[in-house]
Structure formats: C-alpha cells, structure tokens
C-alpha cells in the first residue's frame, strides 16, 4: 500500500482522444496564464516574499519527487537544502564566485550528500527510511554547528548577491526575482520531465509494488538511489538560490523543523501531484508571514494543520481538486 493513488488518471485520459485534446489545450492555456501571472506578480506583491515562496516551492517539489512518485518519505531534506545554502554562501562570499557558479556548487553539494545519504537510507523502507534520513540530517545539523566555515550560531551573513552571468545586477529586486523564477521553472521542468519519463513510470511501479518491480527485472535500488540524488540536488538548487536571495545561510535551514515544514507543504498541497507542493509552499509561507505578526505560536498552528491534513485531508489541495473536478481515475 502506498501513501496516495493519484496522478495515474492523466495518461489514460490522453489516450481517450476527443475530450482529452480539449483538456490538453486547456492545460496549456492555464499554464500560459500562470506563467504570465508569475511574470507580472512582482509589480503587485513584495518580491522578497515571492522569492521565498518560489524557493520553498522548488524545495517542496524536490521533496515531492521522492514521496509522491517514489513513495519514499524523507524526513531529512533540510540537510540538502541547508548544506547547499552554506556551500553557495561560502563560495560566493569567501571565494568571490559568481552567483550562478555558487548555486551550481551548492546543487552539486546537495547531490553528493544525497548520494551518501541515499546509499545508506535505501537499505530500509517505510518508517525506517524516514527515521534514517532524519538521523542523518541531524548529523549534518551538528556538523553545521561545529565546522569552522559555517560559523556556528551566526551562520554565513551578508552574502553578496553579485552579478548574474556578469550581466544582471541581482541587487535589483526585479532582476533577482526573475532569476529565481527562472531557477524555479528549470527545476519544475526537470521534475515534470522526470515524472513523465520511463524512469518516472518505473519509480511509480516501485512505489506501488516494489517486489513486483523487482520480479520484472528492475534493479529497484538503483532507481530509488537515482531518484534520491535527483531530489537532493533539486533541494540543493532551492537552498543555494535561497542563500543568494536572503544573503544568508543559517542553522535554521538544516534543522529537522525545516524538514518537517517541507513535508507539511507537500502534504497540504497534495502528495504525488505536480502543482500541489507549489500551492502548499505558497500557503505555508503566507501563513508564517501572517503568524509572525500575531502572538500565536507558529509551531502549534503548523502542528494543528499537520494533524488535520493527516486525519481528514490526506489528498491535499491539488489532489482534492483533481479528485472532484479533474479526470475520473480508475479504481479507488
């Protein structure tokens, strides 16, 4: 049994012909509208807030690749996000690297860490996988606390945003916003492509029934490891970008609370849906912004949403919408 059973309907609807083509063009139009909105929105809303949403949306999408399409619940994704933030911040601030190279190095750091974690964690499934990733990420937290280059409690502050490709000065909020938007779209495209590739189909097969996938001749460990590394790299991409945007890399980014937050974003938005994590991230970031101005304790509210989602809202927002209005899916 797996955590979800959505996202299988789309392919069958496409095969059905007539109405599906209409649906497809509708989807295209919808995507264009969303894209136009994303381009226009910094003129309406505070860009820093939007960039935060985009960074976390990418982070949540990366996490969702693993849980939603691979069925692996990682409770340690903050390790990749936070380490990449540290590496990017260090490269840009101490070595004077350009922002694009800094973010690339951060992504690479996420990938390498993902490979190490993945090799250990995929040896167990289910709950154990979650506990192992959590424990490993706590190790990263302590390393970040103790290693000299992370500067302990202070973190790396005042990271220069620099000039992208030597052309665009990122201190300009709009240039920064469009850069982050570009990074997000690239990451989202990679995830979309992965999910719809043969590789993604095998991942879903493993999620639904690993023993069966093995018996069909797939070396499931390799698929899981590759998915893990890909997810960690994209989380790293999000973390590195965040370090440039906020000019900051701190311990907050590597705590288990951060890992929990990305789980919540994905759960709230809809696990196993492509757009769900984006919606979830936007909601959670908005909510936290709002709560910061009140005296309500944030963790308690977040915890209540968690409990409510698990009890009555397991499909998440996007999943719920897909189930009510979208394509009828077969079976349950």
């Amino acid at each position: 049994m797996s955590l979800h059973s959505q996202s299988s309907g789309r392919a069958s609807a496409q095969a059905a012909g007539g109405p599906a083509t209409v649906g497809l063009t509708l989807a295209k139009v919808g995507a264009l509208v969303v894209l136009a909105a994303l381009l226009a929105v910094p003129f309406l809303l505070y860009p820093v807030f939007l960039m935060k949403v985009l960074c976390f949306a990418l982070f949540a999408c990366a996490f969702n690749l693993l849980i939603g399409f691979g069925g692996l619940l990682s409770f340690g994704h903050a390790a990749f996000f936070g380490s990449a933030a540290y590496v990017t911040a260090h490269a840009v601030k101490e070595w004077g690297w350009s922002p694009e190279l800094g973010v690339l190095l951060g992504t690479l750091a996420g990938a390498v860490l993902g490979l190490l974690f993945g090799m250990i964690a995929i040896r167990r499934q289910g709950i154990y996988f979650a506990m192992i990733t959590l424990a490993l990420s706590q190790m990263v937290y302590f390393l970040a606390l103790q290693l000299p280059f992370t500067h302990g409690e202070d973190g790396i502050q005042a990271v220069p945003r620099g000039v992208l490709f030597g052309l665009f000065d990122l201190h300009n909020p709009l240039a920064m916003y469009y850069t982050v938007l570009g990074v997000f779209l690239i990451g989202f495209a990679i995830i979309w492509r992965t999910v719809h590739s043969p590789f993604g189909q095998v991942l879903k097969a493993i999620r639904e029934n690993e023993a069966r996938a093995i018996s069909l001749g797939y070396r499931t460990d390799r698929y899981k490891l590759l998915a893990f590394v890909l997810s960690a790299s994209l989380a790293g991409l999000a973390g590195g970008t965040k370090a440039i945007v906020f000019q900051l890399a701190t311990l907050t980014d590597v705590t288990w609370q951060m890992s929990g937050e990305v789980v919540l974003m994905t759960l709230l938005g809809g696990m196993g849906t492509l757009t769900g994590p984006v919606i979830g991230a936007a909601l959670v970031v908005t909510l936290e912004n709002y709560l910061a101005a009140t005296s309500l304790p944030v963790p308690v509210v977040i915890g209540c949403i968690f409990v409510a989602c698990v009890l009555v809202f397991r499909r998440g927002i996007a999943g719920e919408i897909a189930a009510r209005f979208g394509n009828q899916k077969q079976g349950s």
């Binding site: 915890g303 209540c304 409990v307």
Partner: peptide
C-alpha cells in the same frame, strides 16, 4: 506524520 504534528503542538 500525525505524531510529528502532535510533537510540534
């Protein structure tokens, strides 16, 4: 996930 939420609360 549920008990994680409870821990936060």
């Amino acid at each position: 996930l549920l008990t994680f939420g409870l821990a936060l609360i």
